[in-house]
Design a protein around this nucleic acid. Structure first.
Lengths: 346, 346
DNA sequence: TTGTACGCGTTATCAT
DNA sequence: ATGATAACGCGTACAA
């Protein structure tokens, strides 16, 4: 028999309930639900009426375990910290792309912890996501072999994974800092400082590389005393900035490798009373950057393109599992406001 | 028979494969996987070894459709726009709470569109989420009756839903603006302006209400000419600010009801050359608020408590479906920096 | 045009 | 202590 007649039954109606009410077989109901041909219009009407009156909704989960493609129309996304504006913007873009393909997005934050990343991958995997988009942490993503072996494609975003080849989308980090250097050089700056994170962080290394190569192209060399890396938080960035701008001769301009560096550096410049004299270009746009005085000139990442690009690569691979891996580089954009336009006067 | 022996079989190993390899029945495997008693240690070992060697992972989806509680250990979250820092902070807090209970989070953005909200609810529902957390949009959440009837609890966050009673977590909006007024009054301000969004937006209405009641408590009345609402974007806020500060006598202080108002207002004050003279307190903290000059005094929402509170209400209801509905109000915090400390000199 | 039987991977029932 | 078998809700093969 079907189910209890108890009206307080909390369970949602099933295809069986619909079939019973419409007095047809479940397969006929299934046909109607899936727009398959071969159902008489009147039968069809009767079934749709039953669907309506019962408030029937397809159980997508049960459906997916039985369907040939076994797709759940959901993808998993792992970022470092969703509370970070960069991560949430990328996530939003992925959401939109996924929604356009009627897919839902499971989101998790790894906090840069490789173990947490693995745990999330497993949890996503056991919930049968169709694919994964990951901002990878740590030195080894080879554990993803398991997912790939079972048909779950992976796309890396923001930085490449290690020991695991996969489709990847990254920003044009080196190009961004190089452009910043040229932008400053065009305004007469020669002594340009750089504040950045640990070089083990992919983006930090790329940004420094771009900085160095542009400096070398311009002046033949980049003064090492003006370059400070390994800065883990804004406090360290602040202290490094104070030191660098205490040098003689002091730099006349500054490139900040990330947000934390920017916060520390701006505070330092403020304290030193040189915020209006030292040119400054920061990687990553911030909210209300143009409310600052001077308004902050930034190298903005195209988070929308980053997210959409990652989603595109993932869906492309779902469509064509055998295609060669692709790596997309998303241009960054230097947004001139005021701080980067300060000339090297003194 | 079990399955093809083709090693290129993309399908993940099942409990059946494990049983076959360990030479036991599937129920015994299930017992081991679920830590049920009544399995000889040596049998157990054999099974665990088979699990290991096959790389077996439980299919949580298949598991949930059969289990008595039918829980999928996933919840659905609908925010207005995940790219918004407020939304992403709340989301992060919910994620963490859910993770601590081994639940995954499906996230969607409604963009404030009621139809989109409904669509997302349906998609989440047909994927059998255990519960929903929603930042509601529009004038009618009664459609959620269906979810509740089928055992899916709902929690509203940031603002209450309409025509549908449910657990709710909101910020102490009115208290925040009231405190801002008192903060300004303590510095000698009497003519205080207010810039806010449409009054149909719950938080906007609450914030204005708090502003008015505090003004009336202080001066017996709130001058209507200094109050501008219905501001939909920073452009409108800018124009309203220019008008209000063109009045004679002009206000000496300003309370901004939201981020958009803040952006427009600060730009306006800047243009009018009174940014250093007019006191300003803004609702919602912003990144790098203390890099502004003057550093922005804000009424900060406790997004972590908002998210955690919503998640807590949801899990509590999952544990105890019959309990009376609760409404939690999360305190806001006035963060004094510089802009709110400017005295009413001139 | 329609329905029956089976299978997906798991847990639940009940026997052994 | 263990396992055969039903059941979950659905799609699929095939028979009617």
């Amino acid at each position: 028999m079907a189910r209890t007649d108890d009206p307080s039954d909390r369970r949602a109606p099933t295809i069986k309930d619909v079939a019973l009410l419409a007095e047809v077989g479940i397969k006929t109901v299934s046909r109607v639900l899936n727009d398959e041909p071969g159902v008489r219009p009147e039968t069809r009407d009767r079934i749709l009426k039953a669907v309506e009156s019962l408030g029937y909704r397809r159980n997508e989960i049960a459906s997916s375990i039985r369907r040939r493609d076994r797709r759940t129309a959901s993808i998993g996304l792992i970022v470092e910290d969703l509370a970070n504006p960069f991560a949430s913007s990328v996530t939003r873009a992925i959401q939109d792309f996924a929604a356009a393909r009627s897919h839902l997005v499971l989101v998790g934050s790894s906090d840069g912890d490789p173990a947490r990343e693995r745990t999330l991958v497993q949890e996503f995997g056991s919930r049968l996501v169709d694919g994964l988009i990951i901002v990878p942490s740590g030195a080894d993503q080879s554990y993803l072999d398991y997912e790939r072996a079972h048909g779950v494609p992976v796309v890396f975003v923001d930085r490449p994974g290690k020991r695991f080849k996969a489709d990847t989308v990254v920003s044009e980090n080196a190009g961004g800092t190089a452009e910043a250097v040229r932008h400053l050089a065009a305004r007469g700056h020669e002594r340009i400082a750089f504040l950045g994170d640990r070089q083990s962080v992919y983006t930090a290394a790329q940004r420094l590389a771009g900085f160095k190569s542009a400096m070398e192209a311009l002046h033949g060399t980049a003064d090492k005393r003006y370059i400070r890396t390994g800065l883990r938080d804004s406090r360290q960035a602040h202290d490094a900035a104070v030191e660098v701008f205490g040098l003689d001769p002091a730099p006349t301009a500054l490139v900040c490798g990330n947000n934390l560096a920017t916060i520390g550096a701006v505070h330092a410049l403020q304290e030193l009373g040189i915020r209006d004299r030292v040119a400054c270009i920061a990687f990553d746009d911030i909210e209300l950057a143009d409310l600052l005085r001077p308004a902050l000139t930034v190298i903005a990442q195209d988070t929308a393109a980053l997210g959409a690009g990652a989603a595109r690569l993932l869906f492309d691979r779902l469509d064509e599992p055998g295609a060669p891996f692709r790596r997309t580089t998303v241009p960054v954009r230097l947004v001139p406001r005021e701080s980067g336009e300060i000339p090297a006067s003194a």
